[in-house]
Design a protein around this nucleic acid. Structure first.
Lengths: 156, 156
DNA sequence: TAGATAAGTTAGCCATGTCTAACTTTTGAA
DNA sequence: TTCAAAAGTTAGACATGGCTAACTTATCTA
């Protein structure tokens, strides 16, 4: 049993929080929702460039399960946000900022998936849940996941 | 080392998935977002009824960090969805369906928070992250969290 | 109990992210 | 090399979930 895991907590203990703290928490969740689109897109674009050599709207639409016009609109939002570079009808490229964000997201995604797998969860579920969970994992929690991962590795 | 944790997985292994499977995953995330509002509201309403005897829009607005008109609009959506019962200008009550949903959400919330705490994460962060994470935790993952929780309890 | 204050609602605005229908551009094959 | 099919865009609609401003209802207190 490691130091990190040694604090005592009953499984169903309720944590009472000040209304402002709770409101801040919900604000954090709302903000996370606003950046989810951008994160998911740059992550996928990076993957497509790596595996296919380029990122095309039709591929993106297929992977996300949305229609092409949705992709067009969202890509133009990413362009406005300075995350992608792109000419109409051409493939999509990441800017430096986009590449950085993509890298951070892919790292976080891999950690969350690996952590879920280490709990014995099947791959399909781990991937699915990770897609939703990753956007709400703080740096602190991500580090805790990494730490737990190392534990489960060494104790394997 | 338990059975559940015994499968071998490298920490940064990438899981390749068919485009349809990935699309389904994102569809799941989008659906989760659509029910988040309802879940957060019934959860809070249940808490307020328990602690205050009644749930009032002004309290709900304060806890969520939103303005009263937002609460009015969302409550009427919950009413349309059959989750709350309510007369204008009066307190808000849960229907049987609302109460059931609230119970399930509160249970899931408690498990997620307890699990994060068991990883050594501080209470403030655990609560914050749980608020976002809980909506994306499948039954399978929730069970894995419970299992891990029991492990950490017994090995304390 | 009257009037001020607090609580709640309505109307109308905005951004996000989805869609369909119709159009344009690119591509690839005969 | 042309022209049909595939890819991409534009226009316009819709639901969600925020907001402010202005109004109505309820509550409390002097």
């Amino acid at each position: 049993m490691t130091k990190l895991q040694s604090q005592e907590h009953e499984p169903f203990e309720t944590v009472d929080r000040a209304p402002e703290a709770q409101a801040e928490g919900f604000a954090t969740v709302r903000q996370a929702h606003e950046s989810e689109m951008a994160e998911d897109y740059v992550e996928l674009i990076a993957e497509l460039i790596e595996s296919r050599g380029e990122a095309r709207p039709v591929e993106i639409a297929e992977r996300f399960g949305v229609k092409p016009p949705t992709v067009t609109k969202n890509i133009s939002r990413l362009k406005a946000a300075g995350l992608v570079r792109r000419e109409p009808y051409r493939a999509i490229f990441l800017t430096d900022a986009g590449r950085e964000l993509a890298e951070a997201c892919r790292r976080r995604h891999r950690i969350v998936v690996a952590f879920l797998l280490s709990l014995g969860i099947d791959e399909e579920t781990a991937e699915r849940d990770a897609e939703g969970i990753e956007h709400h994992v703080s740096t602190t929690t991500l580090e805790a996941f990494e730490h737990a991962l190392l534990q489960s590795q060494s104790g394997k």
